[in-house]
Amino acid sequence: MAAVGGTAVQDHVALAEIELCGELIIAASAAEDRLSLESIDEVLRVERQERDS
């Protein structure tokens, strides 16, 4: 039996991952071709660090 009184548990990390997946799906569906790695990084808000050789 479910508890009464609003005892819902939220996993904030999981919710953030679901939101990012949704944004990636939207970007992919709007693109005419496959998304580049740079486009994927932009959608997922990933910053690439340049390595000095």
Rank of each mutant, 00 (worst) to 15 (best):
residue 1 M to K: 15
residue 2 A to R: 14
residue 2 A to N: 07
residue 2 A to C: 01
residue 4 V to P: 08
residue 5 G to F: 00
residue 6 G to S: 13
residue 6 G to H: 15
residue 7 T to R: 10
residue 7 T to W: 08
residue 8 A to V: 09
residue 8 A to E: 15
residue 8 A to K: 13
residue 8 A to G: 05
residue 9 V to W: 10
residue 9 V to Q: 08
residue 10 Q to Y: 14
residue 11 D to K: 01
residue 11 D to F: 03
residue 12 H to R: 10
residue 13 V to N: 03
residue 13 V to G: 01
residue 14 A to M: 12
residue 14 A to P: 08
residue 14 A to L: 14
residue 16 A to M: 11
residue 16 A to Y: 14
residue 17 E to R: 08
residue 18 I to T: 03
residue 18 I to W: 04
residue 19 E to W: 04
residue 20 L to F: 06
residue 20 L to Y: 07
residue 20 L to P: 01
residue 21 C to I: 03
residue 21 C to E: 05
residue 21 C to Y: 09
residue 21 C to K: 07
residue 22 G to R: 01
residue 23 E to V: 00
residue 23 E to L: 09
residue 23 E to R: 15
residue 24 L to Y: 04
residue 25 I to A: 14
residue 25 I to R: 15
residue 25 I to H: 14
residue 25 I to W: 11
residue 25 I to V: 14
residue 26 I to D: 14
residue 26 I to R: 12
residue 26 I to C: 03
residue 26 I to A: 13
residue 27 A to S: 05
residue 27 A to D: 05
residue 27 A to W: 01
residue 28 A to K: 07
residue 28 A to H: 02
residue 29 S to T: 15
residue 29 S to Q: 15
residue 29 S to M: 15
residue 29 S to Y: 10
residue 29 S to I: 12
residue 29 S to H: 13
residue 30 A to I: 01
residue 31 A to Q: 10
residue 31 A to K: 11
residue 32 E to R: 08
residue 33 D to K: 11
residue 33 D to F: 08
residue 33 D to M: 01
residue 33 D to S: 11
residue 35 L to W: 13
residue 35 L to V: 02
residue 36 S to E: 10
residue 38 E to Y: 06
residue 40 I to N: 00
residue 40 I to V: 06
residue 40 I to C: 01
residue 41 D to T: 07
residue 41 D to Y: 09
residue 41 D to G: 10
residue 42 E to Y: 04
residue 42 E to S: 08
residue 42 E to G: 00
residue 43 V to M: 03
residue 43 V to N: 04
residue 43 V to H: 06
residue 44 L to G: 08
residue 45 R to V: 13
residue 45 R to S: 15
residue 45 R to M: 13
residue 46 V to N: 05
residue 46 V to K: 09
residue 47 E to Y: 10
residue 47 E to P: 02
residue 47 E to T: 11
residue 48 R to Q: 10
residue 49 Q to Y: 05
residue 49 Q to G: 01
residue 50 E to Q: 12
residue 50 E to I: 12
residue 51 R to A: 04
residue 51 R to D: 06
residue 51 R to G: 05
residue 51 R to M: 03
residue 52 D to H: 11
residue 52 D to I: 11
residue 53 S to R: 13
